[in-house]
Write a protein that binds this DNA or RNA. Structure first.
Lengths: 203, 203
DNA sequence: GCGCATTTTGACCACTTGGTAAAACCTACG
DNA sequence: CGTAGGTTTTACCAAGTGGTCAAAATGCGC
């Protein structure tokens, strides 16, 4: 396997192609449903060539997840205690909905992983994610207690933002099966969710 | 393969055991992640013996899905046009939340299938499910138009009920990673969702 | 307990899959 | 050039997988 830090042009190009291909294949098929051959093919490499860059299928998966985790948590990090409560929460919902629209594969990758018990990222959920959520839940609880929004359970508020926004990425085929294939659900979803959170939270 | 209709005692016992085992294994691993051996083992049979009752892995999967579909759609079917709008919608949410709590494996089975593009049930989504949703969306739209609830997009209202309730089954490990493993989230979830829908929909 | 249909098993097969070894091939740089 | 380091390919396992088959074992009505 090539050295980690000093990347040649070719290494950079190929690892990028592999990670992009792996995202495509893992998100569409899950970890077990994906094969190294599929990923290699999608990346335009032979299987042994791919395994020259990553030691194993597990290693590719781990690399893809690691690269994504930051992006995935950023919208929640940006929730500002100093801001206007309702605008902050609705803004967070908007950012998550945009993420679902613009990065559906990333959303499905996490969905696949978590639905099957998160065997490879459970630790991260219990540490990094939990810490972040605990911190922001305190902020929301303070807004509740101060009467600036309706009193609500902050954890379940966050769960509801996650579930409703990610639904449009993860269950995309079902949404399109019901609305019709050519219909873009996001504008309507945005309006609906704005109404929902505004009416629920306005004190 | 044994005859379809005239089931002997042994056939009944074994097919039941297989379907139960298949639900367990498919919901935890997805279609491709599950192996016929796993299912046979879980059912207490040998692999060839299992394949004496079902022609193939696909056939087992199809049988499990078919058996579940009815149960899964019943809560929406029970939405009564003649009832009180808010009570009907909150009632539907309750039934879905109970389903998530009492039948998490069934929920995860569908989640696995749909996240990966629903290759085996797309047709059903586009026909049976769509027809049912269209019908109930009309009911909700009529309530909206009559001013009996806040004007909302009925389709996205239904999506939000699905996503928030199923979240507690499908993303169970994540919920527990954040709330702590021994915490039962359902009572709080119920209260939160009641507040949410009541405040959003009350005219 | 007999005879027949049902059920179960053990051995097996073809194919896929993750991964390896070593040789062949580039390619930057002196 | 030429050669050293990086890259790619060819050929190949060993394990796992879905599925088959004929023979053995079991149930069951009489």
């Amino acid at each position: 396997m090539p050295k980690a830090t000093p990347q040649t042009r070719i290494q950079k190009k190929n690892t990028d192609a592999i990670l992009e291909a792996a995202l495509e294949v893992f998100s569409a098929n899950g970890f077990r449903g994906a094969t190294v051959d599929m990923i290699a093919n999608e990346a335009g490499l032979s299987k042994p060539n791919l395994l020259y860059y990553f030691a194993s299928k597990e290693a590719i998966h781990a690399a893809v997840l690691e690269r994504l985790l930051g992006t995935w948590l950023d919208p929640l990090r940006a929730l500002e205690p100093a801001g206007d409560p309702l605008l902050e929460i609705v803004g967070y919902m908007h950012r998550k909905l945009d993420l679902a629209r613009d990065y559906p594969r990333e959303s499905r990758l996490f969905a696949n992983e978590i639905v099957q018990g998160a065997p490879r990222i459970l630790t991260i959920l219990q540490t990094d994610l939990k810490d972040l959520v605990d911190e922001k839940a305190k902020v929301i609880a303070a807004w509740s207690a101060a009467g600036r929004i309706t009193p609500v359970d902050p954890y379940h508020l966050i769960f509801s933002i996650w579930s409703m926004t990610q639904h449009y990425a993860d269950f995309d085929v079902q949404v399109h099966a019901i609305l019709g294939g050519d219909h873009d659900p996001y504008p309507d979803a945005r309006r609906y969710l704005e109404t929902l959170f505004t009416r629920m939270l306005r004190p």
